[in-house]
Design a protein around this nucleic acid. Sequence first.
DNA 1: CTGTTAGCGCGTTCAG
DNA 2: CTGAACGCGCTAACAG
Lengths: 338, 338
Amino acid sequence: MKSRQVTIIDIAKALNISKSTVSRALTNHPNINPETKKAVLELAQEMDYQRNMLSISLVTNKTNTIGIIVPELVNSYFSRVIIGSQEAAYRAGYNVIICQSNENYDQEISNVNIMLSSRVDGVLVSMTKETRNFDHLKRFEKKGIPIVFFNRVCDEMIVPKVIVDDFEGAFKLTEHLIEIGKRRIAHLAGPDNLIISRKRKEGYLAALKKHQIDIDEELIIPYDLNLDKVKIYVNHLINLPNKPDAIFAINDPTAIEVIQILKSKKIRIPTDIAVAGFSNDNYSAFIDPPLTTVAQPVEEIGKVATELLIDQINRDVKDWKAITKMLDTQLVIRNSTQ
Amino acid sequence: MKSRQVTIIDIAKALNISKSTVSRALTNHPNINPETKKAVLELAQEMDYQRNMLSISLVTNKTNTIGIIVPELVNSYFSRVIIGSQEAAYRAGYNVIICQSNENYDQEISNVNIMLSSRVDGVLVSMTKETRNFDHLKRFEKKGIPIVFFNRVCDEMIVPKVIVDDFEGAFKLTEHLIEIGKRRIAHLAGPDNLIISRKRKEGYLAALKKHQIDIDEELIIPYDLNLDKVKIYVNHLINLPNKPDAIFAINDPTAIEVIQILKSKKIRIPTDIAVAGFSNDNYSAFIDPPLTTVAQPVEEIGKVATELLIDQINRDVKDWKAITKMLDTQLVIRNSTQ
DNA sequence: CTGTTAGCGCGTTCAG
DNA sequence: CTGAACGCGCTAACAG
C-alpha cells in the first residue's frame, strides 16, 4: 500500500497561502513575491516535495516522455542506440521509456498499447523481424503522436527515418572479399520484409555483378535471424560440393556464431573461409579472429532519431516533415578476412 | 502540439450513457449488462480508445511502474539484469522505466528525482562507483516507496538486496590461478566503497593466504573502473622488477582490456601472464583467448530483485522485509588461464 | 444494473 | 502580486 506523498496543498496549508501561489513559486512564474517564493522553495525542500508528473502531464496534455520500441536488448546494437537516444532526450528535457518486442509481432502490438496508455509524446521504433502489417504503428500517426523509425524502417509510412547506407556498406564489404581473392561468397541474408535485409543483399549482389562473378543462389541462405539455426546453415554450406570460400552474415552476432562453428570444425579463417558481419558490435574487434564488418554510427543513430522525433513533437501535425537521414557506414577490415 | 485522444466521455456521449457505465464496461466490473458492455467494447475498439494511465494512476495512487537505476548500459551486465527484470515485471503487470547514472553521483540524484516525479511504485538500484552518501536513496524509504538493491548494494540501508557470493567467486578463481601454477597474482581491485570490490578482494586475499602465498601490496591496484586507465596499470605491472604471472581483473570488460594490452605487447596469455575476469559477460567466451571468469546468473538477478520488489510493493510499509538473496557463482575456466 | 458526485494533484484562467 | 474556480480523465462511493 502506497502512502501519499507531499503535495502543493500540504505546502500551501503549512504556509497558510493559496495553492496557486505555491504552484507559481514552484514553476518560475514571473508574478510572485520573491519572499513568498523563497519561503515556498525552502519548505518544499524541507518537506522533500517532489512534483507529481502524473498530474502535470494530465493537465498539460504532455508527458515529456518518448517511447522506444526495439526488437531486443541482448545484443549491443539496440542498447547502444538507446544510449544515444537517452542522451539526446535528457538534454531536451525528455524521459524515455523502453519496450522490447522480443522480435514478436504480438508483443509489438502490446508495446504500442503501453506507449499509448502512457501517453508518450512520441515514439522511436525499430520493427520486429516478423512485422509485415503496420496498422498498429499507424495508430500513433492517427492520434497525432509522431513516430520516427530507425534501422528497421517501414516503407509504407511516410515519417522520419534514420538509416545507414546498407547497400553501400554491403557492397564495399563484398568487394573487399572479392579483392582478397574470394569468389564463392555465401550470404546469410535476413528476412525479406526488413529493408535492411534487402538492401544488404542487393549490395552483395551488385558487387558480385560488378566483378563478373556468377551469382549462385545456393550460396544465398534465407535466414530468420534466429542464432540457433546458424549451425544448420553453416553445416549445409560447408558440405556443398562446391563450398563457399567466404561467408557474409547479415549481422555481427550471426558472424560471430559462424566463426565459432567454423572453428569447432577446424576450418581455418580466413584461409579456408573468410567471415564478415555487419554493424561492428562492441566485441567484434576482440573475438578470435577479429571480425571484419561494416561499422555503423550506432549511438549517433539514436541521437539523430531522437532529435528528429522531438522536432516533430514541437511541430503541429500538419507541419510534420518526413525526412529520411541516411548515415554513413565504414568498412572495418580485421583478421577474419585477411 | 498534441491533439487530445479519445476518452471515456467520448464513448459515453456516443452511446448516450454515463461515463461510470463506460468505465465499468472497460474494467471487468461485475455489475454490468453484457449488452452494454459489448456495445462499449466495440465502440472503444472502433474509436481506438486507449485508457489513460496518467489519470488512472492519479486516482488509484499507483502507477504499476517500477524504476531501475543502473550505472551504465554500455556493457552487457546491466542490460542483462534489465532483461530479467522486465520479464518478471511484465508478468506481474508492471512496466519499467530505466535511468542511467553514468557512474555519476549527481546524475544518480537526478535519477532519483525522475523516479519520484514519475511516482514509480518501487525502485531497483545498483549504485554508481562514487556513491558514498545514501540520503538520496533513503528518500524512497521515507516516502513509502520500496527499494531493492542488486549487485552494487548499500550496507547502510536495511532493505532487500540481491547479490552473488563475490567472496567465494573470487576465492575459487584465485585458487584456480594458483592451481595452474601462478604465484604472483595481481588484482585490479574496484573502488573500496563498493561492497563487491571489497568482497572480491577479500576472496582473492583469502585464497592466497590459504595457499601460503605472501601478499604483495604492489600487485593490488586500486582501480576506479575507468577502462581508459587500465593501460597505465598494466604497463606499471609488467614493468615491475618482479612481474606478475597472472592478472585478476574486477570485471570482464577490464579483463578484456587487459588482454588487448598484453597482446599488443606480445606477452603470451596465459603462459607469461594469465588473465581472469568476473561476471562472464556475453562475449567473454569468444575473445582471443577466451576469458576465464566467474559466471553470475545475471538475468536471474534481475528477476529475483524484481520479484522481491513487487513483493514489497504489495506489503504495508510496516511489513517490509529486508531479505538478502545471495545467488551462486560458477567458475568458468577458459584459455586465458590454461 | 446504472447514474451522480466527489476528488486524485496540478496548471491555468479570471478576478481582485 | 494573490486567491478562487475550473478542469485534465478517470475510479470509487453512494444513490437509486
